[in-house]
Write a protein that binds this DNA or RNA. Structure first.
Lengths: 204, 204, 204, 204
DNA sequence: GATGAATGAGACTTCATTCAT
DNA sequence: AATGAATGAAGTCTCATTCAT
């Protein structure tokens, strides 16, 4: 390994440290409390040095969000598809997604409750033809298409449906996160009912 | 009317002025730009006096949000119910809600993207039995119950259903607001499909 | 005197304090070293409060410059005009101007060596018709016109001449200020020669 | 050529690169935007290395200014002298100088508006006997002497006159540069009048 | 000879809140 | 009741310079 590569690795390590620190603050204290100074304090460096590794705060946030989001999405992608009852896999994947999000409120808020353009550019999903850009929507679309093929869903536009599943599920997660004092039991009832309506809504 | 009452009235009047100014700023400039000083400037009082009427900024925001939200909800409540096809009224009311929200992004973000506990305490809807506290959910529940009675919806738990309609619709609005560059046409497609799935999901 | 007036006076007093502190720093340390923090330190207030009295740093600098410049200009205006030999008064006034400038290098640099638009807007003199806006150029113009009348100067455009006198004299001052190690004697020779050429240049 | 010499050459080459980069930035972005890091970026070296070749930023600026200034002066020196009407050549050269300066505001500001001692040490011209050190003043002096010889100028001290021509012309340029919104026409009127007075001032 | 990471100081500005008047 | 001056902390960012490698 040459010197250049070693240096590159070193850079990546520090970048990672910065992102992790930012992630942590975002998670613990929320988006509004995230500051360059706090990140610097956390990694025990001077504030200035952060600008060696990132252009500005926006870039840090964008990276944090993207990283975190990708990590979360990976979890769902790994769900194997039930060839006979693909709709079951669909629900299962989404439930897992909800669960992970509930366990990572900071991440979710950073994605959903964030108005920064740079962040939104990495997580937008409503555009027509977005499947080509967003793996998550692409997978969802394919799974829906497959379920239609198998005769389990009625003939709906698969991308549009994927988008609505996504937005409605996000809506549920958002409120589950923002409202404290909801019992575990009630949470589960809501989640079950959410999917109950969705399934009915898509079944022939 | 005694002096005490007159004073009370005076207080209410100024509180209202403060809230209106805050509302205006929230609407025009967004949540992040709302500051005590800007409110004071707008009502042409001194910053200090605001603390006579409100404990702190959080209380102001909470009040603003509640007021604004109530105003919005009033719009939907006024939709008359179609006695034969109550589900049509349901959809119509919700579409109107979406439309108003899209026209008032500040308000929506203040409600949905806001982490302040005091705010959330006034707009939470997931709790079991919330219908008794939130008129919006109560009405929605009643409308759903009525639609079930009329044989247009299958037998679902009406409150739970109202909650899911609410969360999923919020999810759609949130993304519609956050994502720029969505064409009007695509927006409409998404909204239509959202209700298409909902309706199918609730119909027998 | 009412409360409002007293308060107004108080404000003016602090504004003056700020301007004086800024002036002092400008004079002692130069334009580049002038900072809000330094001003705050000097007047023993917090930095923030300065923004109560001035919109931003630019406004402070503009005020400092204008104030200082007006003060300097006042000195020249007071020179009485020799009715028979007005050109002598002209030279005398300009020499006084040079002398004051040399005694206030900070002020001069703030005016002449400064690129801030707000500052330049207050001291620009090259525009055609500027006499109406700048008292200094107006007076100079009038004096030149009077000298022409008296038959001591040839017929030149008085404003244009005033402008050239101004720019060339500024040029001399600038270099006298920037170059250290010029002997008093040499300074005087230069100044005398400057006016010798000017006088010759304008005499019939 | 020995190793030492080759190294010396190498050093000069890099120094030149640094100065050229600094020059370019000065010209394009102005004095205030000139930073070590920008220079380093431009020459694609590290910031640290610059301190191998120059003691500090001041030294770089001083060198830049001197180089740039020399380059500009070369332009004037090349003007051929009209043997019969040498004063015409004088004016012509100075006009060219003004023109070049107006086209290179960065350079001019770096020379005229700059307080760094190291810079001033390289462009000072007021000292008695400076002709021996500054080629520009020397040439100007000689040209003036020659014009006197030819009977076109009255008998003035040539160095002193050269200095006053220099300072007054600088004064004009300075204001022409600092004041925006001066029409091309007005600029020309001012320049013409400047030389008109100068010529009259020196003619018998 | 060269790197480039790191520092530490400093820049301007905004803010919620307090408190003497 | 009302003022508004004042604070202190915090925000992002840029810079000249140093120094271990």
């Amino acid at each position: 390994m040459g010197i250049a590569e070693r240096r590159q690795e070193e850079i990546e390590k520090i970048k990672k440290k910065i992102i992790e620190a930012a992630s942590y603050i975002l998670m613990k204290e929320g988006y509004e409390k995230l500051s360059i100074r706090k990140i610097a304090d956390k990694i025990e460096y001077s504030p200035g040095i952060i600008y060696h590794y990132f252009k500005d705060k926006g870039e840090i946030i964008a990276t944090v969000v993207e990283n975190g989001y990708q990590k979360i999405l990976k979890n769902i992608i790994d769900v194997p598809v039930d060839q006979e009852n693909p709709e079951k896999s669909l629900i299962q994947g989404l439930k897992k997604y909800i669960q992970i999000m509930l366990e990572n409120p900071g991440q979710f808020k950073a994605v959903l409750m964030n108005d920064i353009q740079e962040v939104q550019d990495k997580v937008n999903i409503l555009e027509k033809g977005i499947s080509k850009k967003r793996k998550s929507i692409e997978m969802l679309s394919q799974l829906i298409a497959f379920t239609i093929e198998k005769g389990k869903f009625r003939a709906v536009d698969e991308e549009l449906t994927a988008q609505i599943i996504w937005t409605s599920t996000h809506g549920l997660i958002a409120r589950l996160l923002l409202e404290k004092n909801i019992s575990e039991e009630q949470k589960n009832r809501l989640i079950e009912h959410h999917f109950d309506i969705l399934l009915h809504g898509l079944t022939k």
